[in-house]
Amino acid sequence: MSTLSLAVRDSSTMLRRNLLHARRYPSLTLNLLLTPIMLLLLFVYVFGNALSVGIGGGGGPDRAAYIAYLVPGLLLMTIGSTTIGTAVSVSNDMTEGIIARFRTMNIHRGSVLIGHVVSSVLQSLASTVLVAAVGLAIGFRTTHATPLEWLAALGLLALFALALTWIAVGMGLISPSAEAASNNALPLIFLPLISSAFVPLHSMPGWFRPIAEYQPFTPAIETLRGLLLGTPIGHNGWLALAWCLVLTVLGYRWSTATFNADPK
């Protein structure tokens, strides 16, 4: 069997194992899903009137416009939130004896991590679909998006999920316990709070704006907004792709190097 078909075969076996875990113990994924949904409801119905001033065309509060503004950011935040679960489950998994068994078997070396990554990306996408459904239920509408733009949006979500997942896998691998993993992965859910997800960049203090503007979430959020709502994307598209690429490569290198090192 060639190396590639061996890799594909072992990785899909590992993926099946990870999906079995996720299906049998869905509570972690579902708990993490609550965060973006609660934030969506909170920001729309509780803070919405105050925060939406100036977002719609007129000067007053505009709830419908704010829902449209909020949903793309929360879809990406959902990915950040799901990958915390990835870090926790990777860290948990590494304490299991079965990982030592995998390391002493004649299988594709990377398949253990690839199984985690693919399973996590699928869970991220399923979670974003659920959050999008909640968004639609409370009034989110995309009137302008063409099928091609929808496809591009889905592709962006998948790439972003892939990038954050590889980083989360690395965080899980270096964490000695599930608690440590969940702490280490905290930036993945904190970063969206200091992006353009909830309020526009121009409302932030000047010294802070560059940080918010160039961190991974803002370009991805602006690109998603552009694809779904027709707002200008500008250089954010390339910036978002670059971030996805850089984080994927870094996360992959970091994770595989950590996994391939002698345990303990």
């Binding site: 194992r17 079995l20 875990h21 049998r24 299991e96 004896g97 079965i98 068994r101 002493t104």
Partner: peptide
């Protein structure tokens, strides 16, 4: 690896399945 089998001190089974 292709020729060996290992049963470690701490059981190498996947407890979740």
């Amino acid at each position: 690896r292709a020729a060996i089998g290992v049963t470690g001190q701490f059981s190498a089974v996947d407890g979740l399945i």
